[in-house]
Design a protein around this nucleic acid. Structure first.
Lengths: 230, 230
DNA sequence: CCAAAAGTGTTCGAACTACACCCATGT
DNA sequence: ACATGGGTGTAGTTCGAACACTTTTGG
């Protein structure tokens, strides 16, 4: 890196902003934090960070995600680049948004404190700095499409989950109620879940059977031209 | 713009690359040009340019598109940001890809010469510099989804087009043959096209009726919860 | 025994697929 | 007259939508 081909051009700060989504109690939540530095110190914001020189944008997003969740190899996908001239009030910054899906429960609460972070229902967002509200809106639209055609929703649940939980999740993603019997019929026909003997009794007296997502089965089906759809 | 809040951070060149798609003779084509400057001078490349200081990323893409097509207000959409460390062999450059859909026929051939530009079938791409092949691949996947749910395909056709033309276009986008009668039935049921009295006799002796896309009708239907789907 | 959530099948209509022949016309 | 592409309808099937009752069990 030295040839200096592009000397006449302008350079920009490039940042990543992470929309970290979790699911709890029938609602999607996003991890927000109170900014610890200027500009806009003390305001609500997404987790973010600047891209460093030896680092790809993807690497930067991974790094930020690992830093503030303590989890490696999260499911993560780029949403897009945000580049309005005045989007950052400090200086000109181009930001690339990524969303990540995590299981809200296996979350380190110490880490939350350390970062002034807080889970917030996406239906109940405070004012956010810059264009972060737009980034979240774009993310939710993208997730809606994605979850309908790829089994990414399972990243928002524990390894063992119940069908009512899964249905609540999809109702939250689609923002619409689903028919219980049709939902289960569809899942059943795809044959990508394993039913366990164990039951979850936290949310009912009768208890709901736990299931797991069988990735091996799913991958095998994919090869045969199968398409996930919910 | 002066506060200098982020002084310790690194800056990057930010570019846009434009995947300009046209349609001709049953195939999607992309506008490529031979690079006129180092690095990789003389190699095939997408149209691109650096983002300037007073300019949003979107503005930069619009500017580049207008420059090299002579057309204002093309249909254009962001594909995403490409930020691998070594993606540009010159220096570290982050690039944001945009695709645009144009009517290949009302194209200024002088402009093509001026830019060393050439329409190339997407099924028959030469080696391209950097990650431009990936950008095109991502674009085609995106267009496939988009064209199925939004009436963007019409941007690739003249104002007046025939149903065989439209079907050829969709077959090119989906990379699969479609049933003529089913295709027309679907279009008919949507009621968003206007049939003209005039016929196109270029591709058959009998001639095929021209149609136009009625945007007003489409917008009105949208309000009533209608969804385009082809 | 009762409240609360889990689980289970069937019917109806809409939408998609497959499919084959006649039409118009320039040469 | 014939070759070439344009235009049309129906039947069968699949898929999605609507819908109500029984089961389990902790309190």
């Amino acid at each position: 890196m030295s040839a200096a081909f592009y000397q006449k051009e302008v350079k920009f700060f490039v940042a990543v902003d992470c929309i970290i989504l979790g699911f709890n109690d029938k609602e999607l939540n996003v991890l927000l934090y109170k900014r610890k530095f200027e500009p806009m110190k003390g305001e609500w914001s997404l987790m973010g960070g600047f891209v460093r020189s030896g680092e790809s944008i993807n690497d930067a997003a991974s790094r930020v995600l690992t830093e503030c969740t303590g989890i490696h190899d999260l499911f993560m996908e780029q949403v897009g680049a945000y580049g309005d001239v005045t989007r950052d009030l400090g200086e000109r910054v181009v930001s690339v948004a990524y969303y990540a899906l995590v299981n809200l429960n296996d979350f380190n609460t110490d880490l939350l404190k350390e970062y002034n972070a807080q889970w917030t229902r996406v239906s109940d967002l405070p004012n956010l700095i810059f264009d972060h509200t737009l980034m979240i809106k774009d993310t939710l639209a993208r997730l809606k499409r994605k979850a309908a055609t790829r089994p990414v929703g399972f990243n928002l649940l524990p390894d063992k989950f119940t069908l009512p939980q899964l249905q609540n999740l999809y109702e939250a993603i689609y923002q619409t109620p689903l028919d219980k019997r049709n939902f289960r019929k569809k899942l059943n026909s795809m044959d990508i879940l394993e039913k366990l003997d164990e039951k979850d009794k936290k949310s009912s007296k009768r208890g709901a059977f736990y299931y797991t997502f069988n990735k091996e089965k799913y991958d095998k089906l994919l090869e045969d031209g199968f398409y996930f759809s919910l």
